Amino acid sequence: MFGRMDPADLRDHDIDEAADRGERMLAWLESAREELDKVIGTGEGPSGQVKATVDANGLVLDVVYGPRALRLSSHELADETLAAVGAAAADAERQTHDLMREALPGYDPAAAQAELERLLSFE
């Protein structure tokens, strides 16, 4: 997304382009807060007996157990619950990325994550 740059190679055009991208991102974040607040991910465990919902931040909002869920062992029930919550979180993340792609053409969540990790590693 950004790559490594030598400051000596920066041109005014590059700086202006980066500033424009930053301004678009900030404007989108301000206007999209309402949309992001509406993101609700849903998921279920492999047996279909556990369903979960989470918000865009990964906060678990609800877990519902089907009538046959109590036939599962405690370990199976725990695994089903974790799978349902994980699937719901993945769904919420996908929805968030879809919103970002709409607002920022060319947005690549994997590249953005890699760049964030690189920046946080203080290389």
Rank of each mutant, 00 (worst) to 15 (best):
G45L: 08
S31A: 15
V63L: 10
V60E: 13
R21C: 00
Q49Y: 06
G48F: 08
A56N: 10
L70F: 12
S47P: 05
Y65S: 03
E30A: 10
E34K: 12
L72E: 11
L29G: 03
V50K: 08
L26R: 15
V39N: 06
V54Y: 05
G66W: 09
W28H: 14
L61V: 06
Q49E: 15
R68I: 00
G48R: 08
A78L: 15
G58K: 10
S47E: 09
P67R: 13
D62H: 13
E34Q: 11
A18G: 00
A32E: 02
E17T: 14
G48N: 09
V64S: 14
D16W: 05
A56L: 03
E35F: 01
V54A: 13
P46G: 10
S47N: 10
G45I: 05
K38L: 10
K51G: 04
G58A: 09
V54E: 06
D37E: 13
E44Q: 14
A56W: 12
K51M: 10
P67S: 13
P67M: 03
A56R: 14
E17R: 14
L36Q: 07
P46Q: 07
N57V: 03
D62P: 06
R33F: 01
L26V: 03
Q49R: 08
E35A: 13
T53H: 06
V60Q: 13
V60M: 13
S31Y: 00
L70A: 11
G43V: 07
S31T: 12
D55I: 10
A69R: 07
P46H: 09
L61N: 12
D20W: 01
W28T: 02
G48V: 04
L36D: 01
L26H: 09
A27C: 04
A19K: 01
R24D: 02
A27D: 15
V54F: 05
G45Y: 07
W28I: 00
L36H: 05
S73Q: 08
D79I: 02
A69G: 08
P46M: 05
T42S: 12
G41A: 04
G58F: 07
E76W: 06
D79C: 07
L72N: 04
S31R: 15
G48Q: 09
M25Y: 15
E17P: 02
G58I: 10
E17K: 11
D20C: 01
R68V: 01
A56Q: 12
A18S: 05
V60A: 11
Q49T: 07
V60N: 08
E23F: 00
Q49A: 11
E34D: 11
A69N: 07
E30D: 11
W28R: 04
R68L: 13
D79A: 15
E23H: 02
V39E: 06
D20Y: 03
V64C: 10
M25Q: 14
L72W: 04
A78D: 14
A19N: 01
E23K: 02
L29F: 04
D20P: 01
E30L: 02
V54D: 05
A78N: 13
M25K: 13
V60G: 04
L59D: 09
R24M: 05
R21H: 04
S47V: 00
S74W: 05
G58N: 08
L72I: 01
L26D: 10
V63Y: 07
G45K: 08
I40E: 11
L36Y: 02
V39P: 11
A52S: 10
M25C: 04
G45A: 06
S73N: 11
